[in-house]
Simulated scan of single mutants.
Amino acid sequence: MRSSVRRVPSPCAQWGDKDADFIREILDLVGDKWSVLVIGTLSEGAVRYSELAEAIPGISQRMLTLTLKQLQRSGLVDRTAYAEVPPRVEYSLTGLGTSLLSTVLELAAWSADRHAEIRRHQHAYDSRTA
């Protein structure tokens, strides 16, 4: 007897397991709630740490520092320290980070544009499952 279950091809079938693992890793990084906001904030050019902290509501100093380090590690953000008194440090997008910018800004705009609709769906779902 044949099973009626249809096998659906994976959207990642075009990539090997190694590539799929890396894709998940990068999506975890750039899809993180703070990374999107940091990348978007850096869209206009170099920004000091304190300006980043002020521009991103709700981010703690610890999360901003960790997010910047992760983005630096992956080559998306550059850190420039100036030998001045007091010391000045600025963060900016690298070429790689800039190549991701339009995608990140589109995702943020999509989220903002559909905020009310998504909230309605969430509340409706929550009321059915409560």
Rank of each mutant, 00 (worst) to 15 (best):
L29P: 07
T65Q: 11
R73F: 08
E51I: 09
L64A: 05
L37N: 12
I56W: 04
I39E: 00
S43Y: 02
T41I: 03
L52E: 01
Q72C: 08
A46I: 02
W34T: 11
T65I: 05
S35D: 07
A46F: 01
G40K: 07
M63Y: 06
A55C: 05
S50N: 12
I59C: 06
M63G: 00
L29F: 09
D32L: 04
S50Y: 05
A46P: 13
D28M: 11
D32G: 11
E54A: 13
I39T: 00
S35V: 09
S50L: 10
R48D: 13
I39Y: 01
A53P: 00
G58P: 04
L29H: 10
Q61W: 05
I23Y: 10
E25I: 08
V38E: 04
K69W: 05
I26K: 14
L66N: 14
Q72K: 10
L27Y: 10
G58K: 08
E54R: 13
K69T: 08
I59Y: 03
S43G: 15
S43K: 15
R24L: 15
E51A: 14
E54W: 02
R73S: 09
S50C: 03
G45R: 06
I59N: 04
Y49P: 02
S74T: 02
T67S: 09
I39A: 01
E25Q: 14
T67A: 02
I23F: 13
L37F: 07
Q61D: 14
G31L: 12
G31M: 12
E44P: 00
E54T: 09
A53W: 06
A53N: 07
G45E: 09
T41E: 15
P57G: 06
Q70F: 01
I56V: 10
G58L: 07
M63A: 12
R24P: 02
Q72Y: 05
L71V: 01
S74Y: 14
R48V: 13
R73C: 02
G58V: 06
R62F: 08
I56Y: 03
L71Y: 01
E54P: 00
K33M: 12
E54D: 14
S74I: 00
R48H: 07
A53V: 05
W34I: 11
L64P: 02
L66F: 06
R48I: 10
L66G: 02
R73Y: 09
V38N: 03
G45Q: 07
W34G: 04
A46N: 00
D28F: 07
I59L: 06
I59V: 15
R48E: 15
K33L: 12
K33N: 11
D32R: 07
D28S: 13
T65P: 01
L27E: 14
L71F: 00
I56S: 05
L68P: 01
L64Y: 03
L71Q: 00
D28H: 09
S74W: 12
K33P: 05
L37R: 15
L42M: 03
A55K: 13
K69N: 12
A46K: 06
L71M: 01
L68E: 02
S50M: 10
Q70G: 06
R62M: 09
K33H: 13
S43A: 15
L42Y: 02
I23K: 12
R73P: 00
G58R: 08
E54L: 09
Q72A: 04
L66M: 09
L37P: 00
T67W: 02
A46Q: 07
E51W: 02
A53T: 06
I39K: 00
G45I: 07
L29S: 11
G45N: 06
